[in-house]
Amino acid sequence: MKGKWIEVKLITSSAAVEPISGIFYGLDVKGVAIEDPNDIINRNQGEMSWDFADVSILEYKDSAAVVKGYFSQDDDIDKIVEYINNKIKELIDMGIDVGEGKIVTNVVFEEDWANSWKKYYRTTKIGKNIVIKPKWEEYSPKDDEIIIELDPGMAFGTGTHETTIMCIELLEKYIKEGDTVFDIGTGSGILSIASSKLKAGKVIGVDIDEVAVDAARENIQYNNVSNVKIRLGNLTDVVEGKADVIVANIIADIILKLADTIKPFLKEGGIFIVSGIIQDRKQDIIEKFNKSNFNICDIKQMGEWVAISAKVN
């Protein structure tokens, strides 16, 4: 997808990232981005700037997070902003710290966005052997490194976020040659591609975001992984059969719901890997998994984020 988009940016706190992301996903959003300003600034010595935005992310250096939703020019942005503001008030009434809670809207061009992204998206090694490489950069693999080429497009999944890194580390641990893997909320397709390159036999990635599905399919072509299929929709609607490993790098509230519905899609002894969980929600996930008769295998933490793997009892 090319062209002009309306960006609705919400400056918030880390504690509110999940419910605010849920607000955006409750709308007809064409893409959602979650940014950790401190992470971006640390990686780039503060050099990153967004040429198309009227407010640089560097202004929000002390904020915990920025959540952005991208909408069509035909959408009624005033009504969208009003809806988001009303939902923010509900979060405040629930006692959730929403931080600054400021909304900024911009008109952005995908081409401008992509060029700004390239200024700070660099080749990065994660896990034991996985190297994430922007498709426009040159890189010669060393020893047994596994290269994944990405162009995030409007799906915003570069593979360098803590949640993705932890998921890949757990995929490296649990995927066996020939396994079937389901990737819920595939985004740019990075976890699906990583699963294939870790010798999974069959991989299905699903996402409810059309833009993410388009980006994931393009990234699959870049990486020449023919055993990966990307589908638009919810797992329970578009996937049949059972997986050896299911990975979901999403938000805690959705993971809590999946704990009740995911078992029919897992083989006996199958592994469920989840991330996108802020520290404050870790115990909620652990308790839910225990109640749902999952045996927790790993609990990983990186920065403010947590990843958990669990086995079907």
Rank of each mutant, 00 (worst) to 15 (best):
R43W: 03
R43C: 04
R43D: 13
Q45D: 15
E47H: 03
E47M: 07
E47L: 12
E47S: 08
M48L: 15
M48N: 03
M48H: 03
S49Y: 06
S49E: 05
W50E: 15
W50Q: 14
D51V: 13
D51R: 10
D51M: 11
D51E: 14
F52K: 07
F52W: 10
F52E: 15
A53S: 11
A53L: 14
D54K: 09
V55A: 13
V55S: 14
S56A: 10
I57E: 11
L58P: 00
L58R: 10
L58N: 05
L58E: 02
L58W: 01
Y60F: 12
Y60I: 01
Y60G: 01
Y60K: 09
Y60M: 05
K61L: 13
K61F: 14
K61R: 14
D62L: 02
D62T: 03
S63Y: 12
A64I: 05
A65L: 09
A65G: 12
V66I: 10
V67D: 15
V67S: 12
V67G: 11
K68W: 08
K68E: 10
G69R: 04
G69V: 03
Y70V: 06
Y70L: 06
Y70I: 05
Y70P: 04
Y70R: 08
F71P: 04
Q73T: 14
Q73Y: 11
Q73D: 11
Q73N: 11
D74K: 09
D74Y: 10
D74H: 08
D75A: 12
D75Q: 10
D76A: 07
D76G: 06
D76T: 01
I77Y: 00
I77C: 05
D78R: 04
D78W: 02
K79P: 02
V81M: 01
V81T: 07
Y83N: 10
Y83R: 11
Y83Q: 05
